[in-house]
Write a protein that binds this DNA or RNA. Structure first.
Lengths: 212, 212
DNA sequence: TAGATTGTTAATCGATTAACAATC
DNA sequence: TAGATTGTTAATCGATTAACAATC
């Protein structure tokens, strides 16, 4: 399907393009979009758009552009988001709860597609056994391995305290999780083959401070 | 002070180095760290570490490495985080509240240095006028311009609904804010000179899905 | 001194931009 | 057809890695 693995920057922009296409498609009317317009809306050059897409195939018509719906579906296929992806959440603190509610509201009505948060985990006995939101049950962290296997969780979101993050990540990896989004302010180590993204407010603020 | 503006990737890694140095310094004992150890801990090559630092000056001793405390202070100076930086938060929903509490707990006891969340903003009359956490008051969004000026807010965190984000960003920019961290799932437009970072869970999940 | 590690230059690698023939 | 825009190649730009003299 993919010949070579695409560079990370390309994958990031693909997700951006997909968002733009969603906005354009929401305007109604099937229509075409040029690499110029797509680029303008996504904040990249037209050449960059064409180059990125060319990495995966030919999706446009010369002189016309790209059919919005078609390109949308192609990109969804490439990014693997044309199916249900089951997501787990570790850490049902304030941030974890906020994330759970956000994800639930954003994706749960999208039917069989995209991201479904289906389980969350914590060590607090007061939280375990009751739903964090909707039908998203909170399991004890000890059950992580079993639940990952039983429910087929593929991506994990980590919203646990910094001190616990590495242990939880290790447990996820041991259970077969291959992608982790880490909100804890620590550098985690994962084996090759496991994809780790970070979302770290303090790190972002420090970077921003440089430009003041 | 800075000759040329450093590339974004370098700035990102600088923040990473700073975190590592903090961890090492917390171990106690003043000591030296080599580009190899710093690199290992930060997940980059030793050559990269030296190249990044060389961008700003000479901070090491041949045959020995870098004095942890010294390098820490140098990097804090370079990143501008050796002073109080006043942060505003727009949007006191679930995510906003979680972020406010996190920032308050993480930084408020750090005295005069680093990031201080000093004001938050919302349009909900039930939220306006009462603190979101500690002494962080919630102001009405209409007061944003005045409060930014009065309290000297430099960085803004946006945790408002997608539909409101661009208007709030515009208001921040008009008030003189020069750095924004956006949590809303929309592409924002800001004028040159204003630095915009995004933290977007859906976008991250879509990228992660590619690697499944 | 001997060993280690920096700062820096040169070589490599990869990503972005420019340009244009192909073609809808 | 004439105009527009793609897909792709070549040129440019920038970032990473390798290597090593300088030196603590």
């Amino acid at each position: 399907m993919k010949h070579t693995r695409a560079p990370d920057v390309v994958v990031r922009r693909l997700a951006l393009y997909l968002r733009v296409l969603g906005e354009v498609a929401a305007d109604g009317v099937d229509r075409f979009i040029s690499s110029r317009e797509l680029g303008d809306r996504a904040g990249v050059s037209p050449a960059q758009v064409r180059k990125d897409l060319a990495f995966f195939g030919e999706f446009g018509k010369q002189g016309v552009g790209y059919e919005v719906r078609v390109l949308q579906q192609e990109l969804q296929g490439i990014l693997n988001v044309d199916r249900e992806i089951r997501v787990g959440l570790a850490g049902v603190g304030e941030l974890g709860t906020a994330l759970a509610r956000y994800l639930y509201r954003r994706f749960h009505h999208d039917g069989a597609y995209a991201f479904h948060l289906v389980a969350s985990f914590d060590v607090d006995p007061d939280k375990v056994g009751r739903p964090v939101e909707g039908d998203i049950m909170v399991y004890h962290m000890d059950e992580l391995h079993d639940v990952v296997r039983r429910l087929g969780l593929e991506i994990f979101i980590l919203a646990v305290p910094a001190g616990a993050a590495q242990a939880v990540a290790d447990a996820c990896v041991a259970a077969g999780v291959r992608a982790i989004l880490n909100f804890a302010p620590v550098k985690l180590r994962v084996p090759p083959g496991v994809r780790l993204h970070i979302s770290d407010v303090s790190l972002e603020l420090q970077q921003l401070a440089y430009y003041l």
